[in-house]
């Protein structure tokens, strides 16, 4: 494996694996609460953080983390108080975040939109020693939250109103989900880029769903899929000289299509097994009874 002889490739692969684990791990809860595009919104807000990082000559990764966490909390607060419609508020953050990023980076000494490109589309080969440290710390936080609190996050994402009556701190858990998603966005920023982050949060989960019946299996398969495509994409980009971020996302979508095709016969087999298990319950044909029963009476 000559690919592992280069320090920059070792760093790239480590970062890719961590993104492959964390993005679907938090993404599954976003998909469950039907906020699949939240990651995309946070990604746009993080651009302002990158721009501010350049302007203040701070680390863009840590600045992006700070700003996207604030943006995610803001989104959650807008959802609570419901002053503006959720999708309108999200749109404001999308475009405000993007405009802020472009503005700040152009104000920065010697800065231009060219600096932004490596954050927008990822720049795996330039991941530095300190980037890797930041990515490892942030990824550890994401795994701790998404695995350690899986039952609580499942309950809140499945049915918020019910979760409140089980005594769970619903608001705190919603905020934690938003913050964890924001942290994941900045973890993935160097690997797939801010514009493609959301794909790794959503598509592996959607692909895994084609095969699964349980939440636990969906979680496991989507993380396995995330790791496979990030490693596969990174290795492919090394040998074929293609952009890693785009390769990873296209591989993920390919996996989704493949699993969808595989799933159709599987679903048919399951339906047949179910029908065989309870033959009387659901006859396939309509049958009109000869006499009317009490159940046929229609109230007035």
């Amino acid at each position: 494996m000559e690919i592992l002889n280069y320090a920059f490739m070792q760093r790239a692969l480590l970062a890719a694996v961590l993104v492959g684990i964390t993005a679907p791990a938090i993404g599954i809860y976003l998909v469950q609460r039907r906020q699949a595009l939240m990651g995309d919104g946070i990604g746009h807000v993080a651009m302002t953080g990158v721009g501010l990082g350049f302007l203040l000559t701070w680390s863009p990764v840590w600045m992006a983390t700070l700003v996207s966490v604030l943006g995610a909390v803001l989104m959650e607060l807008i959802r609570w108080y419901g002053k503006t419609r959720g999708d309108i508020a999200l749109a404001m953050l999308f475009y405000g975040g993007m405009a802020g990023g472009v503005m700040f980076i152009n104000l920065a000494p010697g800065g231009s939109n060219a600096n932004l490109t490596s954050y927008l589309f990822g720049s795996l080969s330039t991941v530095s020693e300190s980037d890797v440290t930041a990515i490892c710390l942030l990824a550890a936080f994401v795994v701790l939250v998404t695995v350690g609190l899986r039952r609580q996050l499942f309950a809140v994402s499945q049915d918020e109103e019910f979760a409140r009556v089980t005594g769970l701190p619903v608001r705190a858990l919603n905020l934690l989900t938003a913050v964890t998603a924001a942290v994941t966005v900045t973890v993935a920023m160097r690997v797939v880029g801010l514009l493609l982050v959301s794909a790794l949060m959503v598509v592996p989960v959607a692909a895994a769903q084609q095969l699964t019946r349980s939440f636990a299996a969906t979680f496991a398969i989507s993380v396995a899929l995330g790791v496979s495509v990030t490693i596969g994409g990174t290795v492919t980009s090394y040998y074929q000289d293609v952009p890693p971020g785009a390769t990873i996302v296209l591989l993920t979508i390919g996996a989704f299509i493949l699993l969808s095709l595989l799933a159709a016969p599987l679903a048919r087999r399951r339906a047949r097994a179910l029908a065989a298990a309870q033959p009387a319950a659901d006859p396939a044909e309509c049958k009109i009874p000869a006499t009317r029963g009490a159940a046929d009476e229609v109230g007035v």
Partner: peptide, 10 residues
């Protein structure tokens, strides 16, 4: 919800 879950999980 938006992700498959078994009866037991719910």
């Amino acid at each position: 919800g938006g992700v498959p879950a078994t009866v037991t999980e719910v």
